[in-house]
Design a protein around this nucleic acid. Structure first.
Length: 505
RNA sequence: GGCCCGUUCGUCUACCGGUUAGGACACCAGAUUUUCAUUCUGGUAAUAGGGGUUCGAUUCCCCUACGGGCUACCA
């Protein structure tokens, strides 16, 4: 099944895996699947050189939950490993040195303080073709002095020497031709003083070594694409450069700007696929999974944020997406995230998903909420009865709890004021009739009830609502007779008796 | 400030020169459900502005406006 198409997802571990990240992963995955290629996960497991514990597992779990597990990853290495950036440190320096040798990069000794001073002195200071000639680097120092400083162990970085005047252009799969005047791009640091590569060096080197053919990433990378093009040109050749696709950003639903981790807390919806604990603050932010989203719905929703198949279809399974995905139909403009629409996708998927498939997740949630499920068949019946009224998996708790536990304190307030002996007699009689019933199903129950109502000269509405409150505990839930049928004769009678006692007392 | 990318209902979007500008979410109204939800029916609502090109522009080009991104030894 494999051909030479290789796409990679290379998340940073510092921010968890939020909507934008998962969507990037998803589009990479869909492109790979659509074209029979390989989907690779390369993990950046260090933050400022420090290893971030748990980041890898977290990302793997998220992808797994979404159903878009990579073909090659740190856990399942292919032929082009290692797949963790922390294990690739040694690789980068040689490429940086190669660029220096070719005259395409140079050593810079300027301290952070010195650069800071430059920035305050000159409003729009940039380390570039213009300023590098008067700063502290191998270009101004000369070979001998540079060598001496390096030998002496003076801290230094390697910077890319951007051409003074050159149009750098490349073809983006989504945006077409994009070109930038190299004079506008500064001399990016490639290798930091601590020997760690910056993203710029790392992506290019890693993409080359891992034979990446197509690279999807967020639009925020578009301005630095010329840096990467320049690197490819001088290191490996433009003909080997992957085809870029810069995905539109996911924006805040209110106000303006890129959706950020904080927006979730602020606006009351998740921004992470799964619960994410910030390693620095130890704060945990709720994920879509924990909020009761089906992974199918989550993935479906993300795919539709920036892509469509040209028809009016909105509900797609992962398989359908993989079959229909096309880069040409990816949008250019950013999309504001809409949690209401996200919930709608989930609701549609709950309705669409078979009861049997819902059994396990719903059972887990009920158990978590302290509702013991003894009989899976019984739960299946309940799920079938209530699933159309659930938007999130957690809605199953309220919608099905009363099937498992008799309401201790039914909301009789709405019944009490209009309660009278006549109604009391009616329900006593109802119990008697129920006890006599041979068949116990919704149709017979309804028939029996309606006949009694007709005979007793009570308005149906006057006793139907009370019956619901007695059985369910409140003014909600599925059809009363369906509920009664599922509850069974004994439970129904017991619940009615209980309420009758409360109403009299 | 500079550079890059973008711009259709409130939101996600369709229409890749000729449509009464379509769908979905949300919202409103009605029907069904003697609960709530579901479902069904209907409704309000958009081509940022100005110039071109063209017989004809939402669609192609330019300008302006607006929005977003980037402008770190972060990604």
């Amino acid at each position: 099944m494999e051909n030479d198409i290789r796409v990679r997802f290379a998340p940073s571990p510092t921010g968890g895996l939020h909507l934008g990240g998962v969507r990037t992963a998803l589009f990479n995955y869909l492109f790979a699947r659509r074209n029979g290629g390989t989907f690779i996960l390369r993990i950046e497991d260090t933050d400022q050189g420090r290893f971030v514990a748990g980041a890898e597992d977290y990302i793997l779990q998220c992808l797994d939950w979404c159903g878009i597990s990579p073909d090659e990853s740190p856990a399942r290495p292919g032929a082009f490993g290692p797949y963790r950036q922390s294990e690739r440190k040694a690789i980068y320096r040689q490429y940086a040195e190669e660029l220096v040798k070719k005259g395409m990069a140079y050593y810079a000794f300027d301290t952070a303080a010195a650069l800071e001073q430059q920035r305050t002195a000159t409003p729009n200071f940039q380390y570039n073709h213009d300023t590098r000639n008067r700063l502290d680097n191998s270009l101004t120092l000369g070979a001998a002095e540079t060598a001496a400083r390096v030998a002496a162990g003076n801290p230094h970085v390697v910077r890319l020497k951007m051409p003074a005047q050159e149009i750098i252009s490349f073809t983006d799969m989504i945006r077409g031709e994009v070109s930038v005047d190299s004079a506008q791009v500064d001399d990016k640091v490639l290798l930091k003083a601590d020997g760690m590569p910056t993203y710029h060096l790392a992506v290019v080197v890693d993409d080359y070594l891992m034979k990446i053919t197509h690279a999807f990433r967020g639009e925020e990378w578009l301005p630095s694409a010329p840096v990467h093009v320049q690197l490819w040109k001088h290191l490996f050749g433009l003909d080997k450069m992957p085809q870029w696709a810069h995905l539109p950003l996911i924006l805040k639903p209110d106000g303006h700007g890129k959706l950020s981790k904080r927006d979730g807390d602020r606006l009351g919806f998740p921004v992470f696929a799964m619960n994410w604990t910030d390693p620095k603050t130890l704060e945990t932010t709720k994920g879509f999974r924990e909020l009761g989203f089906l992974p199918e719905a989550f993935v479906n929703m993300l795919a539709m944020l920036g892509w469509n198949d040209g028809t009016e279809q909105e509900i797609f399974s992962l398989e359908e997406l993989a079959a229909k995905f096309s880069v040409e139909r990816i949008h250019k403009a950013g999309a504001k995230f809409d949690f209401e629409k996200a919930k709608w996708f989930n609701q549609e998927w709950i309705k669409k998903t078979d009861t049997e498939a819902l059994l396990a997740p719903v059972k887990a949630i009920l158990t978590e909420k302290g509702i013991a499920v003894a009989d899976d068949n019984f739960l299946s019946t309940v799920i079938g009865l209530v699933k159309d009224r659930c938007h999130l998996l957690y809605d199953f708790v309220e919608q099905s709890a009363y099937f498992f536990t008799a309401p201790e304190h039914p909301a009789l307030e709405s019944v009490q004021p209009k309660w009278n002996d006549h109604k009391q007699q009616f329900f006593m009689e109802l119990i008697r009739q129920m006890e006599l019933m041979q068949q116990w199903d919704a149709t017979d129950l309804e028939k029996e009830f309606k006949e009694m109502v007709a005979a007793s000269q009570i308005k149906p509405g006057d006793v139907l609502l009370p019956l619901r409150v007695m059985l369910v505990g409140g003014k909600f839930g599925a059809g009363v007779f369906d509920i009664a049928a599922v509850l069974g004769k004994a439970a129904c009678i017991q619940r009615i008796r209980h309420s009758l006692q409360l109403l009299q007392g």
